[in-house]
């Protein structure tokens, strides 16, 4: 159907005039919710707790050495034949190149996108995290492919404590802001209960999601 005819039908049924102004309304979450704010320490601890409730696992790392030790521990245990990683300088601050040197690593933007289908572990950063719900937000661009965290069995996200917001509304795009082609909010591993209500993990997306939170004083 022609667009204007489609919209005119709606307008007519609603008894509205073309170009009639939109009445004001109470937008977004209730004020008691948007008015809350957690201290930075509480944001970190709430995120870690809720992320675990969703079936993920998060660790707070006091410095880079600790973060490296943990990441190295995971990779040693998982012994992945191939690791997918965000490309360019996106993970530069975490200085993981040395540690990854002894693995087969595919970098987004360099290796062909299709080859990421065979990665077992995907290492990404995130655009923000949400304490309330234990959520990671990934925003796509040329160096931050969606496949890096969608396709592998294990997704490891590296983030700074300061990236953790209290609530979802703080991470969502503001009016007029340029919105990325894909914003992906991840709260724990892929799950299904479609077989006799029995919870199963990793039916399509990653079966394990880990977050390493770098909490360096003053950064």
């Amino acid at each position: 159907m022609e667009e204007q005819a489609f919209l005119a039908r709606i307008r007519e049924r609603l008894g509205r005039q073309d170009g009639a102004p939109v009445a004001p309304y109470r937008r977004g979450a209730p004020e008691f919710w948007t008015g809350r704010s957690l201290s930075s320490a509480d944001r970190v601890s709430t995120f870690v707790e809720r992320f675990a409730q969703q079936g993920g696992q998060a660790w707070v790392c006091p410095d880079l050495t600790d973060l490296h030790n943990r990441l190295e521990g995971f990779l040693r245990d998982l012994a992945p034949p191939a690791i997918g990683v965000w490309g360019g300088d996106t993970l530069k601050e975490f200085q993981i190149d040395g540690l990854l040197a002894r693995f087969t690593v595919l970098r987004w933007g360099e290796a062909p996108a299709k080859s990421f289908a065979d990665t077992h572990v995907g290492i990404t950063g995130c655009a923000a995290a949400i304490a309330d719900t234990g959520t990671l937000m990934m925003a796509a661009d040329a160096w931050r492919g969606r496949s890096v965290h969608l396709l592998p069995t294990v997704h490891i996200a590296l983030l700074h404590a300061r990236q953790i917001k209290t609530r979802l509304g703080e991470a969502l795009p503001k009016p007029g802001e340029r919105v990325p082609s894909s914003l992906h909010f991840v709260s724990g591993p892929s799950r299904s209960s479609d077989i006799e209500n029995d919870l199963s993990i990793g039916v399509h997306g990653p079966a394990a999601v880990y977050a390493l939170v770098l909490a360096v004083e003053g950064t």
Partner: peptide, 30 residues
């Protein structure tokens, strides 16, 4: 408490992006 995946698609993949659909169609039904 929260859905596992909330996915927000704004248009198809953009210049320089190597994944995501190349073409996005939205069919709106009455």
């Amino acid at each position: 408490n929260v859905i596992t995946y909330m996915s927000c698609f704004t248009g198809p993949r953009r210049d320089g992006e190597a994944d995501g659909a190349r073409e996005l169609h939205v069919v709106i039904l009455d």
